[in-house]
């Protein structure tokens, strides 16, 4: 593996559409559940323990065997009860598929791209990581960390939080991301049905409400 390649893939400045997604934070801010740095800390921990675990597991599995993308994609549909979140995941998958296939050869995504099918974001992330020559643990760590950076920067933009403080929260969660990535890599070959299925009902409900707003600043 190349550490620099992993940095390219995990860089928040990778033009893959992520900047317009708050990971549910815009809805949480609007409903008053996240008001300050301590709330953001709790939000990030909850997101990592749910979406982070699932995303890391599916990214690792897709990286281990990108040909499994259809099964993994169906498995993520089953784990995403909110239609709005499914749409957001596929929109980010589409954007990463465009970016990733320009950066590296990703044969496993040639067919979905040609058929204009957008797999879920974690599946695309794993397949792109494979194409970039990375290993499942790399894909998992990029996935787990990626579930945090969106809401952390959205907190800075929506609440005017201190950006150093928000990034300090990310630094504090590095160890947790590493542990989640280890576990995801260890189980990368497991059948889809036995992969993690942690859910966050409040994020699902928030996403559904958010999708009905007349004016929103983030896509999800």
């Amino acid at each position: 593996m190349s550490l620099t390649t992993l940095l390219v893939l995990a860089d928040g400045r990778l033009p893959a559409g992520g900047h317009a997604h708050s990971g549910g934070l815009e809805a949480a801010v609007s409903s008053g559940r996240v008001r300050g740095m301590a709330d953001l800390d709790g939000f990030l921990q909850g997101r990592l323990a749910t979406a982070g675990v699932v995303t890391a597991s599916f990214a690792a599995a897709a990286c281990a065997d990108p040909q499994r993308w259809r099964d993994l994609d169906a498995g993520l549909d089953a784990r995403t009860p909110s239609p709005a979140l499914r749409k957001a995941s596929r929109a980010q998958g589409r954007a990463l598929m465009r970016a990733g296939r320009i950066l590296w050869p990703v044969p496993a995504l040639d067919r979905p791209a040609a058929q204009r099918i957008a797999p879920h974001h974690p599946v695309v992330l794993g397949a792109v990581a494979h194409g970039a020559g990375l290993v499942p643990r790399d894909a998992a760590v990029a996935a787990a960390y990626g579930t945090l950076t969106g809401p952390a920067t959205a907190g800075v933009r929506l609440l005017g939080l201190d950006p150093f403080g928000a990034h300090a929260l990310l630094a504090g969660l590095a160890g947790a991301c590493d542990r989640i990535a280890d576990e995801a890599a260890a189980r990368a070959g497991d059948p889809v049905d036995t992969l993690p299925a942690a859910g966050a009902p409040l994020l699902d409900i928030g996403a559904e409400q958010h999708a009905t707003w007349e004016v929103r600043l983030f896509a999800s």
């Binding site: 559409g17 317009a20 933009r157 896509a219």
Partner: peptide
């Protein structure tokens, strides 16, 4: 309409993904 995550310049310059998707969707 495209959401820009509070960064209108990012959406038209640094990360044009959502705008490209919107153009492609309109054409299709």
């Amino acid at each position: 309409a495209v959401e820009t995550g509070c960064c209108p310049h990012t959406a038209i310059r640094d990360d044009i993904s959502a705008n490209l998707d919107a153009v492609e969707d309109l054409e299709s």
